[in-house]
């Protein structure tokens, strides 16, 4: 009997769809879902530390997409390699001070050496995170480009993996 092989690549969209631009991560992965990529599992998350840790456990490669507030122009796209240089020194902590988010999951994952072997974080700059707001036009306009970049990244990763095997 074969145990089903877990998808080795996971894309985790993080956000709250009722908080304006915070929904961006969810909207991105919904588009990826619609593209029905093989060998890739799509996951939507509210971004609590435990949920993110659970989601990326056992995956060989992970891409996290989340809205960020980095004082850049709305819609700006950022890419960080969690194992590489160039990660922001201080990731902003989750907006709810009582809840732990992606930044904490990253910090703890590093500390406990529990990060997936390949982990890319895509950020998209938001401008309005108020309850009940729509995604702002600049962010909405940047979503297709971010989806394209992630698709390209997925193809490259899958290609590398095949080559390695």
């Amino acid at each position: 009997m074969h145990t089903p092989v877990k998808p080795r690549l996971k894309v985790i969209g993080v956000g709250n769809e009722w908080r304006g631009d915070d929904a961006a991560g969810l909207l991105v992965v919904r588009r990826l879902q619609a593209a029905a990529l093989t060998g890739v599992e799509i996951f939507e998350s509210l971004g609590t530390t435990g949920e993110v840790q659970d989601a990326w456990k056992d995956a060989a490669g992970v891409i996290v997409v989340d809205a960020v507030a980095a004082s850049g122009p709305p819609g700006a796209i950022y890419r960080f390699d969690a194992h590489g240089a160039g990660m922001p020194v201080k990731l902003s902590r989750s907006p709810s001070s009582h809840g732990w988010g992606v930044a904490e999951a990253l910090a703890l994952g590093r500390l406990f050496q529990e990060l997936p072997p390949w982990l890319i974080i895509y950020g998209i700059e938001g401008e309005n995170f108020d309850p009940g707001r729509e995604v702002s036009p600049a962010v909405a306009a940047a979503i297709p480009e971010l989806v394209r970049r992630i698709q390209r990244e997925i193809q490259e990763w899958l290609g590398r993996e095949v080559f390695v095997r």
């Binding site: 530390t49 435990g50 904490e104 910090a107 703890l108 500390l111 406990f112």
Partner: peptide, 15 residues
Amino acid sequence: IQMAQDHPDTVKMGL
């Protein structure tokens, strides 16, 4: 997070 650097097992247990 800072506490976890010195007390990793305790923080893991708490989580």
